[in-house]
Every structure is written in C-alpha cells, then in structure tokens.
C-alpha cells in the first residue's frame, strides 16, 4: 500500500520543477498538474514498479463556463498492486491550434493506455477538446457532421433545432 504522502514525495522526486497540488477529499487522492507533462506523468504512473497504475478507468472533462482556464481534463486510474484509485487533473486554456483557429488541446495518452482511445474520443465529442496525437479522433456518439459540442455549458439541453436532419415523412 502506498499513502498520499509517499506518493507526493515520489512525484516531487521524479518531476522536481513541477508544481503539484495534492489534495484528499472523502478518502480520494486528487493531483493537479500542469498540462505539458501529461504523457511523462502517465508513463511514470504506469511503469513505476511501486505504483503500477495499469487500469485507466476514465477520462473526462469539466466545463467551468466562466473561468479563464475553461476546461479541466480529469483522469481516473486504478492500481491493482496498491488497491488504490487516483484522480489527477489539469486545467487547459484556449490556445492556438494547427488550423490557425483558437481551440482547446492536450496531448493524448493513447500511447500509454489503449483504454484511453475511446475515452478521449468521447471527451472530444462532448467538449471539443483536441487530443493531439490521437490515432483516430472522430466523434464517438453524435453524427459525424454535427457541429456543436453538447456537454459545453453554452449548449442548451434541448439542442439547436434543425441541427440534425430527420428523414422525410
């Protein structure tokens, strides 16, 4: 078993220049980290012999609507070895994309866990966050030519009328 303290010590040893914000709420450990180290951090968490977070349970995002850093991407991991669940998350800001338009992006972790593949597609579909380096970033649920991102807070619950065509009667 590994405790929150020793986990944070390990992380600080591994990434000395990085600021981690480690908190515990209702017995769950949450780690906040800067988005540029996402792949290194994931590789460390998965391949370190004491941690071995082999199971990537969930990837999702939160839309904070009015905050400057609008989205938070949240990862849930599970370690069989330590019987420990870990949540770590990072804020992402609007930035320049390859197409010249502004958008939200973060590096994809599909190279670390294959399970991340569909989870990231789902997050892309629902929030419009671009996962750079994802092998097959398509929409997961909505039709391919749908233009909006449903789980963003500015998208109405009932959708945009007429945005998806119905067949003729």
């Amino acid at each position: 078993m590994i405790s929150a303290d020793s986990l944070s010590q390990k992380l600080i040893n591994q990434f000395p220049e990085t600021n981690f914000d480690i908190s515990e709420y209702r017995g769950e450990i949450t780690i906040q980290f800067p988005k540029k180290i996402v792949i290194d951090l994931c590789k460390f968490l998965k391949y370190d012999s004491e941690l071995e977070f082999l199971l990537c349970e969930d990837i999702t995002a939160i839309d904070w609507a009015k905050r400057k850093e609008r989205f938070t991407v949240v990862y849930h991991l599970y370690s069989f070895k330590n019987n420990l669940r870990l949540r770590f998350k990072t804020n992402i800001d609007e930035s320049e994309q390859s197409g010249g338009k502004a958008g939200y992006s973060i590096d994809s972790v599909t190279s670390v866990w294959q399970a991340a593949n569909w989870q990231e597609r789902e997050t892309y579909d629902m929030y419009g966050i671009n996962f750079k380096g994802h092998p097959d970033l398509r929409r997961m649920y909505m039709p391919e030519d749908f233009e909006y991102y449903p789980l963003r807070k500015d998208f109405p619950l009932m959708g945009i009328p007429g945005s998806i065509p119905l067949p003729k009667k």
Binding site: Y141, M142, P156, L157, M158, K168, K169
Partner: peptide, 15 residues
C-alpha cells in the same frame, strides 16, 4: 428524455 439527441416522438418521420 427532453434532450438534444432524442427525437420527440417518432410520428415526426413514420406514421
């Protein structure tokens, strides 16, 4: 399901 993805009644496209 009054949501963006659900057709509100199939009588909109089949009798």
């Amino acid at each position: 399901y009054r949501t963006y993805s659900v057709v509100q009644g199939i009588d909109q496209f089949v009798p």
